[in-house]
């Protein structure tokens, strides 16, 4: 029995409450998702009715093929782009933030206060859009994938550094000392001794940030415009013209781009929860 179970310790009540909770969760959360799935299987005319009905005829495969083929296989290109973006930027974030978080936790210096301030600013301050484009243009990175990858890394670093710093604090210093006595230099100490121990927090960072980067719409919109460079979030606008939205295809697309986060959720539920609730207990 956990703490909160003791709060509601009258056992008789909970069946009615459970029934109410489950029914309302179905209405509020399950029906919208069921609506996506059902509409994705309808034909174009029935989908345009926008109602919650069973499809007259199932067109799952046909809709799937049409969505993939739309605008010269844009969705395929977008999936490739998104995958490259997500993998590269998350890998960069993990390595850089782990190094920074490690030194930030271990080394006491007069700069620590300032560095912590910078890390927190990164969480709070909204990035300035046009000046960032200006900087990217000066560097020759505007409208390029490497540019967007660096942007995602820069904006995601703060969150990762905080997680890594907190986790490094739980690794005993004696371990560092032992490694140093055995002759390890700074790089060796970090990559051979510390980095492998960070495994659980690395998984958390990877899962949370890859969902974030994959779902990101704003940064690709600003920093990587153009159909050739589309990421998956931008493909959603393929099917919604002002007057002739193809709802079956639109919802098929939503369904397809929801699958990667869903897989993450099914396999890494615990790590996602750990990452997103860090800070809830300590404040």
């Amino acid at each position: 029995m956990s703490t909160a179970e003791l709060v509601n310790h009258k056992p008789g009540r909970s069946y009615l409450l459970s029934a109410v909770a489950i029914v309302s969760s179905v209405v509020v959360f399950v029906i919208p998702f069921a609506f996506i799935v059902l509409t994705a299987m309808k034909d174009r005319q029935q989908a345009a009715d926008l109602d919650f009905t069973w499809p007259h005829q199932f067109q799952f495969v046909q809709n799937f093929v049409e969505v993939v083929k739309a605008r010269d296989y844009m969705l395929v290109i977008a999936f490739i782009n998104s995958t490259i973006l997500t993998v590269a930027s998350v890998a960069g974030m993990v390595v850089l933030a782990a190094m920074a978080g490690f030194v930030l936790q271990r080394r006491r210096s007069k700069w620590n206060g300032f560095i912590n301030f910078l890390v927190l600013s990164g969480l709070i301050i909204p990035p300035a859009v046009v000046p960032t484009i200006w900087v990217l243009q000066k560097l020759g990175l505007f409208k390029t994938m490497p540019g967007l990858i660096l942007i995602e890394i820069a904006f995601g670093l703060s969150f990762c550094i905080l997680l890594f710093r907190a986790f490094v604090a739980t690794i005993p210093r004696e371990l560092d000392e032992a490694a140093i006595i055995d002759g390890a230099g700074p790089l060796r100490l970090f990559f051979r001794v510390i980095f492998p121990l960070l495994r659980s927090v690395i998984i958390t960072v990877v899962v949370v940030q890859s969902v974030n980067v994959f779902n990101d719409f704003v940064n690709p919109l600003y920093f990587l415009p153009g159909d050739q460079n589309a990421t998956v979030q931008l493909t959603l606008y393929n099917f919604s013209g002002q007057f002739s939205t193809q709802y079956n295809l639109l919802f098929m697309d939503i369904l397809l781009i929801t699958i990667p986060p869903l897989i993450m959720f099914l396999f890494f539920n615990r790590q996602i929860v750990a990452g997103m609730t860090s800070g809830a207990i300590k404040g």
Binding site: L96, A97, M99, A100, R107, A128, T132, I180, G185, P186
Partner: peptide
């Protein structure tokens, strides 16, 4: 001598300053 080298900050510092701090101040 410290094994906790300031060099570890370098890549983070470069990316963060160029793509976040500079635009913020420029704004």
């Amino acid at each position: 001598y410290t094994p906790y080298s300031f060099w570890f900050y370098l890549p983070t510092a470069v990316i963060y300053s160029v793509l976040f701090l500079v635009p913020t101040f420029a704004s």
